[in-house]
Design a protein around this nucleic acid. Structure first.
Lengths: 209, 209
DNA sequence: AATTGTGAAACACTTCACAGCC
DNA sequence: GGCTGTGAAGTGTTTCACAATT
């Protein structure tokens, strides 16, 4: 125990959670790792190993209690309370992410939107007003947000990242195609749509690889 | 040679390409793997190993010619010509992706948008008309698209994936939170925003992990 | 002299196989 | 008997270290 947990493991937990919540809703009380494997596409050993990083949640000969395991995973991820997120960038992508997040009634939710374009400020995305960057620190404090999403152009992204770090944000999801540098204490996850599209092209017949 | 190339390697190629194109634009002609490492954040050995999957593109004692290497990588990925992509789903996210793709003048470009909602059909996103699903096969043939993006709700995603496969699409970027099943010949890449957000929460101080 | 290209070593993750427990 | 939890084996990826080359 207490060893560092691989990122890939953390990425699978939400998948388990989704299946488990589904089962709880259907009043299924017990599930085996083999059945979970079938629902998720991961192997049963992998699922057992993943969970073993955090403890022994199952019963030998029986399986896992869906509700208990769901609660455990929520606790591990920190989803046992509302998770407020701030979004910076109210362009096409930012606006889409905001609407997506606000309409789903998930635990993780965008609670504030920032932009530096004064034409956008004061306008609303699904009831949440777009605020100026100057308000960032104050809003982060008020909402207790520890997470942020960057959806601004590449040139502006580093400045935004630095401001987020300064405001006390601990984890950033970056959609800009920029290599950001943040301090040790800040976790950075990049989603680069251009990379995704360009690498996808490799897997079609239109290449020489 | 001729061995299967890891996905992680393919994902790094667009990063190299971006840096190289930047350098070409700045009239930098030669770059070492160490400098590339500095620009990309990957290690120099990793860069050399990645490129070695495809051939020997550098000159010992010198480095890599930026323009040549850029062309090589474009060839490997299949970006040495326009790459047409079809998008299914003209909701918030789909529309944002479409605008994003059409405004950047990149090699990979969304050339057609489909939706099943007849209220949306006929409307335009940046000059591209939203068309009904019934036109899919015809448009895929016309445009020669081998790639597709799914940006529809989870419940509709499998049906869309099957239609794309039937239409001859070879690689799919799936933004829906659904576990899709496609044939051997179709490459599937998932981007699940809920998973990204939920796993991000682990890296904040609001969890018990 | 400098930098690539690459076997070998190290590290990380997954799968195997079965002991342990209900 | 059935299923979890886990060491051991296997596989895949990264880093090391250096011979090959300009």
């Amino acid at each position: 125990m207490a060893r560092r947990i691989p990122e890939v493991v953390i990425k699978r937990l939400p998948v388990y959670l989704r299946v488990l919540n589904d089962l709880v809703r259907k009043d299924v009380e017990i599930i085996s790792s083999a059945e979970l494997a079938h629902h998720t596409g991961f192997s049963s050993e992998q699922i057992r190993k993943d969970l073993a990083y955090f403890g022994a949640f199952g019963t030998r000969g029986v399986g896992y209690n869906t509700r208990t395991l769901s609660e455990k995973i929520k606790g591990i991820l920190g989803l046992d309370r509302e998770v407020p997120v701030v979004l910076v960038g109210a362009g096409n992508l930012g606006t889409a992410l905001a609407r997506y997040s606000m309409n789903k009634h998930e635990d993780v939710r965008i609670v504030a939107v920032f932009d530096k374009d004064w034409d956008k400020i004061g306008k609303k995305i699904e009831d949440v007003e777009i605020r100026p960057m100057e308000d960032l620190e104050e809003v982060v404090k008020e909402t207790g947000a520890k997470m942020a999403i960057i959806a601004v152009p590449a040139v502006a992204a580093q400045e935004v990242a630095s401001k987020l770090e300064k405001a006390g944000i601990e984890a950033i999801l970056n959609f800009s195609p920029a290599k950001l540098s943040v301090g040790e204490g800040v976790y950075l996850q990049n989603i680069d749509l251009t990379i995704e599209l360009q690498s996808l092209a490799f897997y079609t017949s239109n290449n020489e690889g």
